[in-house]
Amino acid sequence: MSKTPLLEIEDLYARVCDKEIIKGFNLTINEGEVHAVMGPNGAGKSTLSYVLTGKPGYEVTSGKIRFRGKDLLSMAPEERAREGIFLCMQYPVEIPGVPTMTFLKHAVNAVRKHAGEPELDTPSFIKMVREEGKALGIDNEMIRRPVNVGFSGGEKKRLETLQMSILKPAFSILDEADSGLDIDALKVVADGVNALRDGRRSMLVITHYQRLLNYIVPDFVHVFADGHIVRSGDKNLALELEEKGYAEFVKEK
């Protein structure tokens, strides 16, 4: 069976505030694949996630990124999201004054509109959020509150997962999805993520630790150091890393 590439990153260089962070990064992710990128602090993992989603201040100096064959770098952040790229953030942003429900509705309808689907009316929207929220332990009270304001670390990550569940992106980036989570919350989040694995959707899981990969089992594992991938393998590579630490891999280059 031939594989359809979803995301292709070719020889990417990117910098933040004149500091080169990503240096010669190459990666292709096909439909349905889950890739894990592991690396030490400061390797550029979060930078990679922001470059993919188009955060201002993250400047690509050379290289190409294609998403479903389209030039991703020419798209605004919202266009990338509408095309199906979702970033589950390490530190979700608090937005005082904007009820979570309002925020979710704007997001869902923006994505639906782009896909040529009719906007959801409020009752069907609320119904959908309730159903998806139930599995994640998100109640009505939580979604009436302003976005992430006063949320615990676990609540923030559950809200990120809820957004992923209702936006149903073709490609999700999970940036340190396990940070700040206890083991029960981690399971809830992982279940939410796994529910989206349908053989077509793809994911990029960014993490320090192997632990998360027990719950979200990747097809491929890449070791990311000094701005590029130094080694790739299957899920066993993660176990090897856990045992030996990063030092050995970083030297390999």
């Binding site: 188009g54 605004a76 979702f86 942003v93 925020f103 923006a110 936006l167």
Partner: peptide, 15 residues
């Protein structure tokens, strides 16, 4: 707040 704007954009909401 630029971070709030980006967060919303990253969910598909126009600038």
């Amino acid at each position: 707040d630029e971070n709030m704007l980006f967060y919303m954009q990253s969910r598909g909401i126009g600038y």
